[in-house]
Amino acid sequence: MTKQRKAIALISGGLDSLLAAKVVQEQGVLVEGINFFTGFCVEGHTHAIRKRDRARPKRNNALWVAEQLGIRLHIVDIVEEYKEVVFNPRHGYGANLNPCLDCKIFMVKKAHEWIREHDFDFIITGEVVGQRPKSQRKDTMPVVARESGADDLLLRPLCARNLPPTRPEREGWVDREALYDFSGRSRKPQMALAARFGFEDYAQPAGGCCFLTDAQYSAKLTDLWQARGEKRYELDDIMLLKVGRHLRPAPHFKVIIAREEGEVNYLKGYRGQYVNLAPVSHSGPLALIDGAASDADLRLAARLVARYSKGRAAPEVEVEVRQPGGGVHTLKVSPMPPGEIPAEWML
């Protein structure tokens, strides 16, 4: 009897990784999924926060993919280790702060460590030659294989026939002829294959799989680093960058103001860690202060919060200021007129 071969598939939650895993599964290989959580992932929670997105299914796409395939999924928290990839990508950033090539190398490297620990045979990704301008080019494909240490144990079933045969192909663990030769930016071949397998309702992220491809998000992260004087973040920082209106009146503090009820509920969870403000004379948003704000700064922040409250046209709004330790005081302020808020404060 031939040995049952086992592969781990990198599952991002998008269509390509779903198809890649399916193609190999169809060949009788036992496939399990691995999904990496970097903290920047675009996932259900961002939809859960914003009320306007509530109608959309709040599913975790990687779990959904695993369920479609009937495979187990291992979700790995790489938040800490991933920081180095974001801070110092050897191959540089993409259009925004997305270090895609280094990110791929890192994830394949982690998957390679995983297969060695779990006695699996090879690794599958949904990469396609020419799909992305920097990280998925014919000349960067070998870079990922080499620098991750996975070498020829890395199989890309969707474009394998455009690449030199890997060990799973050479050894006959998979049939190269039954793999694909997709290339370029067109999504049509993937969509046709999805239809053939009967997959519907799959996620189609526009820019990429994470917030680092988003220009506005990257600008907020750059601001955070500038304000701190170094590239540094904690998980809470990068999660908060996904939420609310961020205004920075001065380098040493910024104000994060909820835009609607879902965000209010979300920011509530941070009241134990951040100085927070909310209007009490009128209904209005919750806001957090990130940084060390003086009394004058807090007064300014209160005026901003009042501006976004129902009392924006009132002469005076009462705003409660709460310290994470429990101290509370109230400020009476005039809402800042929108025309007086400098555009450069808005991140």
Binding site: G44, H45, A48, K58, N60, L63, W64, A66, R72, I75
Partner: peptide, 18 residues
């Protein structure tokens, strides 16, 4: 938990992992 998303995600994780 406090994220309502868990009402979907934890059951999905359970289905996937048995």
């Amino acid at each position: 938990c406090t994220d309502p998303g868990v009402l979907n995600d934890i059951p999905a994780w359970c289905r996937v992992n048995g």
